[in-house]
Amino acid sequence: MIALLNEWFIAPFDYGFMRRAFVAGIALSLAAPPLGVFLVLRGMSLIGDAMAHAILPGVALGFLLAGFSLPAMSLGGILSGLVVAGLAGGVSQMSGQREDAAMASFFLISLAAGVMLVSLGGSSVDLTHVLFGSILAVNSSALVLIAAISSLIVVCLAWMFRAMVVECLDPLFLRGQGNRNGLIHGLFLALVVLNLTAGFQTLGTLMAVGLMMLPATAARFWSKRLEGLMAIAVVWAMLASTGGLLLSYHLSMPSGPSIIMLAGIGYIASALFGRHHSLMAKLRRRATPLEASEAG
């Protein structure tokens, strides 16, 4: 029994690349799901996807200028993500157009620029790498970068937690309090960009969104409290990234997609069997009797 467990769960981590991939997955799982929870609550679930495309030209530019160097690509990604978020925010403030429309326009421009840059500079293999990542190729310096970025995200999120909650709930109230409305929103988008750049090395720009959104959307079926949502999402992201890693090792599947598939299976299962609003909960039709709820 112990031998089997060892073979399945421990032995894979004899390899350095598996250990680094594991730690990278855990680090990302701490930072991404809380951001995803806020995105879901703000009705901005697709903004993560848009931002993932927006960081592509920066990554490609970093790749063209400095070769396959993670710091250069990350820096480029962060910059282009921030530029797109800033432009979208600016245009929607100026013209009164809804922000998602401006965001959609700019991320498409950005995506086209990114694909063009990648194909100018390299083969399609590089493009696949940028789009889908390879968690198994994370080296030590990449790991430090990922851990540092996700730590920064976690600390920032803790710092602005109450402001985020108030802004989500009632932006007018926060604006009435003399806070510049855009500040918290902008900071939040910046954190999303940071998180996606931390994730693109391991999961790729597209898959990085999955670790952010899927645990958060799944958690909505299990908890009605913000703290509960975040805790469930983080735990589920950790399980999915570790499990996906082991699956890809044993069944020799690509690592990024197997992590996201695992998180996605969790979402579908939650939608079917979760505690709140799921299919099961709809069919259950049970409620606490009046006396009991009055007493409680």
């Binding site: 730690v23 680090a27 701490l30 851990a147 730590s151």
Partner: peptide, 18 residues
């Protein structure tokens, strides 16, 4: 396996703070 990997300690401290 894991105590030598960088980032873990930092990460968990941050998590406690959060």
């Amino acid at each position: 396996h894991f105590h030598a990997e960088s980032g873990v300690a930092f990460q968990s401290t941050c998590y406690v703070i959060t």
